[in-house]
Design a protein around this nucleic acid. Structure first.
Lengths: 335, 335
DNA sequence: CAATATTCCGGAAACGATTCCAGACTGGCC
DNA sequence: GGCCAGTCTGGAATCGTTTCCGGAATATTG
């Protein structure tokens, strides 16, 4: 006769213990440290657990061990194709280490970040902050509170994973210089974005090195609409080529340029940043600085696991290479 | 004199109670049901909690209340731009109800879904399964175990949110018919995808209604590469127009068509499905059946919250409208 | 066979929060 | 002043799991 059991009933370690005829402690040991129990009891516990469909309640475990098995990922905008790629890599890497992922989208609202992180702190073992928009001071307040790895930004007490924007800009500028361009416009991203400042820094030194003019077209939202919005400013400027903070902005430029009949790359060359999927699919293809998004995600998880395992005194800084991908949107200067 | 407190130390309800000079119970009440305590004690507790930076440990709470405040989202591939849009909507809607989101990407591996769901069950109050690839029977086994809402699929015991693919296909086919097309190819998505079967069903009845030929070009991965891979089959067929399971496949077709010099829409018209961001940015613009992705996400959360609140006997089925967006990739038949 | 070392197991405490229950106040009313 | 109702509060139990500790059973050695 088989025991009927309400499916909705949640099965606890106690049920397994009863069925296996052992104590809770033994069940716990049998499942967590199998070599601490006799093979026979282990078998009994395992079959009992399987029959009942037992899965430990990690919430209860976390109270004792202080380890939740979760990591929190905070990012400004999942609609920006850059982030899903990173998150996907984070996901798979985290799963490998038996971690689950909490996802929080702040919708580019800096004020949302800190409360979100606070609310999650007790539920996760550590945080991956992707391109955080909060101020340095706000974030520094979390130092020592929870293991944090920052992506696409550097803040002193935390380990970080960034792309080598400076080198990417160097490649981009060298490419444009070789094509004959001498006046480059830059369409900046969010003012609060560290990447934006980093890229601008790299761009400035690269243009200076080639003795080129840099026209800064002002900040805009890192979206297609943001690019569309500033396109006319770029056209009105003396620039013959434009580098955008990211691919979305670059595509927004494309849009408006096309609408106004401004030929790319004949009248103006365009370079983006990130190499999102779209970049290769538009016409002309978007020349862009590729960032190893999967590597960033993977490296971030690795760093986080390390910094959770042992308190490093010197926070690790991983800088990943960038690579200029030349497509149709850049061409020789016509005059 | 201010009390120095190790920042790394996690602050519990006990600490707040001590500082406020009340019992744990009162702290709990003051924070959870403020009207059950005297205003004065409430104030004392609140300031103590603020000073200490106390945030309740939801894991501990969940043991008592049986409510984790988390929902689990499982999806096949975050790299497919359709899903981030949905997840973003889920996110914001969930946050409104004070829920956090667990994200799991199965990488299109049906075998990963069930274990993933199992592992998360104790940690979430309910699941949002986006386009699950597991078999009906596997998923049905979860009936009664955990509240589940299924997106882009219908499985009998669960509430579901789907798009009205049949109507979308009707619009697409009517559009093509009006343009003079009589032979349409369909590039199918994953065999395990319910949406794919649903769309195919809708397409069949729509073409039948217009007495048009339907050429089924076989299944392929729902990615750009998948589309590229079958593009030549489509060209070799007598079809003058092609409808793809989704936009990514359609863009893959674009790619290969462009490479072979096959003009869109002059030689062949192309229609996609989903209306991802890319669709409006490629050239020519991709005519596609738009799905209200944000609405899907929002509705799914609503349904989940409802089904967590009270056991519905009849699972709700929300079917959201679709809308054909006509862009440059479809045109009149040339012969 | 006795003494010791080793392995294995059960009982109980602990984690941090919530909730029930009963007792201590307060105020109002006769 | 005494009694009752009502409001607040603290103590204790509880959730499901892990871990410490001591005891029982087994194996090892002289």
């Amino acid at each position: 006769m088989c025991v009927e059991r309400s499916v909705a009933m949640t099965v606890t370690i106690k049920d397994v213990a009863r069925l296996a005829g052992v104590s809770q402690s033994s069940v716990c040991r049998a499942l967590a440290n199998p070599d601490q129990v006799r093979p026979e009891t282990r078998e009994r516990v395992e079959t009992a657990a399987r029959d009942l469909g037992y899965y430990p309640n990690r919430a209860a475990r976390s109270l004792i061990t202080g380890r939740t098995g979760n990591i929190g990922v905070v990012l400004p905008d999942l609609a920006n194709p850059f982030f899903p790629s990173v998150v996907k890599a984070i996901q798979t890497q985290a799963r490998r280490a038996d971690y689950a992922v909490f996802l929080s989208d702040t919708d580019e609202d800096p004020a949302l970040e800190v409360p979100l992180i606070r609310a999650l702190t007790k539920q996760v073992d550590g945080f991956l902050l992707c391109s955080p928009r909060a101020s340095d001071d706000e974030l520094k307040a979390f130092a020592g509170q929870a293991p944090i790895v920052v992506l696409n930004r550097r803040i002193t007490p935390f380990p970080s994973v960034t792309a080598d924007s400076a080198d990417g800009m160097r490649q981009a500028v060298a490419h444009l210089h070789a094509l004959g361009h001498r006046r480059i416009a830059y369409v900046a991203g969010p003012r609060t974005s560290w990447s934006n400042r980093d890229r601008l820094r790299g761009l400035r030194s690269a243009t200076a090195a080639h003795d080129m003019d840099l026209i800064e077209a002002g900040n805009t939202a890192p979206t297609v609409e943001g690019g569309t919005a500033v396109a006319d400013l770029v056209v009105a400027s003396p620039a013959t080529a434009v580098i955008a903070y990211n691919d979305l902005i670059a595509l927004g430029l494309f849009n408006r340029f096309a609408a106004r009949g401004i030929a790319v790359p004949e009248r103006i060359s365009v370079i983006g940043f990130d190499d999102i999927l779209l970049a290769g699919l538009v016409h002309p293809g978007l020349t862009t600085v590729a960032i190893a998004k999967e590597q960033i995600g993977r490296a971030a998880v690795e760093l986080l696991l390390e910094s959770m395992a042992a308190e490093q005194e010197r926070p690790a800084r991983r800088v990943l290479p960038t690579q200029l991908i030349v497509r149709g949107s850049t061409g020789p200067l016509h005059d």
